[in-house]
Design a protein around this nucleic acid. Structure first.
Lengths: 246, 246
DNA sequence: GTCTATACGAGGATAGAC
DNA sequence: GTCTATCCTCGTATAGAC
């Protein structure tokens, strides 16, 4: 599950729904509502990440949020809508910066993701589950994979042009490999959380394909950089408006 | 989903159930029963691989097998038991031979798996879905991952001892990487069946970690070898006896 | 805005006729 | 051995009281 923060741009558009203004310090009638929404989405992240979409139930999520199922459905009219709100809910973290090379950004993102294990788990479980037919998030993840492969292929092309990539490595294959590696490691981590470190495995692959592995930052360096830059705990909840792609 | 044929040994023990003698040419009252079981399991492989365990229903599987749900439950008393029968149902194919090195066996198995896309899909979907809590196959896949990582680590150790592995490659990391790569590629293939070739991606990784990539067979060579050795269409259905691990 | 009560359907599993 | 009919549970969703 690479980069849980890299969501479909279409998802950010937001429908013509009501502005709920979460987190903006409003005092109006929406404040309490926003808090409720937040509690619900937090509970949904937990339950979806543990049970998957099909395994999760409105009852369980409502119970975890401390409200009745009916109240939950007052805010999110369908389970599908709640799923969408949960996936666009971005307290996710983005490791980014022009001062880092592509490989460092990938490994850095893996390190940053360690701050949000619940989101990593959510995306891992849903990526896998959504591969089945008729899953509401199938189209979303299919597009995500395609976009990701394309972006990574471009990045590897650029590395090749700069002479940093071993000449016998095909950028397209490398792109598929990095995405597969990331998802595969995180799948194993779902079964065996203690044994696996995504950042180490990814870095090891980059080490093999680069002409000069010395340009790679160490996980420790990236970790320290991240500790300083890490955003504060300002979480924002997106509206639960449904979207065609879901 | 590496090697769908490498099932938990415990699964092969078979409970103290009745010998149904499928595929042994019996004429007795069990012959028709064995055929029915076969039809049911074939249908179950299809439906489970498309919808996952939770998404699949007894009704759908029975309809696909051309019988009533009750008849299905006459042979497999619970959905769980049917899942177990489906997973131990081995028309899976095993690429093996002492004449091949470990890397060639892995790539060869990926090629052999192309003959049984329905099984690859089944294991891919279930591996992913079973990562959720309370899934009946969770323990099975957790053990499978652990065993696989251990086996591969041993193989990489042996390569290292023979001087065939690049000295800067950690066998344990390489083992995790191969398993992750295999599963990750097959996950992408579930979304994009046409774009991805597991054998090519795996071979490319081995190419990077071996001191002498020249020892690797080409996918074409392995494919031809497999075409000649491929077992005939003798499929055997295992009994649907449930097992503690399920 | 939040709750209780409930409708409605789907899915797993059982009973018993043929 | 196969079917029809049915039970029970659970999950989504709605109606309406407070």
């Amino acid at each position: 599950m690479p980069e849980p923060s890299a969501l479909d741009p279409a998802a950010q558009a937001g429908g013509p729904g009501i502005e709920h203004g979460a987190g903006r310090g409003r005092r109006g009638p929406y404040r309490k509502s926003a808090e409720r929404r937040r509690r619900i989405v937090d509970a949904a992240v937990e339950v979806f990440s543990e049970q998957g979409y099909r395994g999760a139930t409105i009852r369980t999520i409502a119970a975890r949020a401390g409200i009745s199922p009916s109240s939950l459905l007052h805010f999110y009219a369908t389970k599908n809508e709640l799923l969408w709100a949960t996936m666009t809910h971005r307290d996710s973290v983005r490791f980014t910066g022009p001062e880092h090379s592509f490989p460092d950004r990938v490994v850095g993102q893996a390190i940053a993701n360690e701050d949000v294990p619940h989101l990593v788990r959510l995306y891992g479980v849903l990526t896998a589950e959504a591969a089945t037919q008729d899953h509401p998030a199938r189209g979303y993840f299919a597009g995500r994979f395609a976009v990701l492969r394309g972006q990574y292929a471009d990045e590897f092309e650029a590395l090749a042009d700069a002479g940093l990539l071993r000449p016998d490595v095909d950028p397209a294959v490398a792109a598929v490999t990095v995405v597969a590696l990331w998802d595969g490691v995180q799948l194993q981590a779902l079964y065996d959380p203690e044994v696996i470190r995504a950042a180490d495995v990814l870095r090891d692959y980059f080490r093999l394909v680069l002409t000069d592995p010395g340009v790679l930052a160490t996980p420790d360096q990236l970790g320290r950089w991240w500790q300083e830059r890490r955003p504060s705990g300002a979480d924002v909840i997106a509206d639960g408006d449904t979207n065609e792609t879901l």
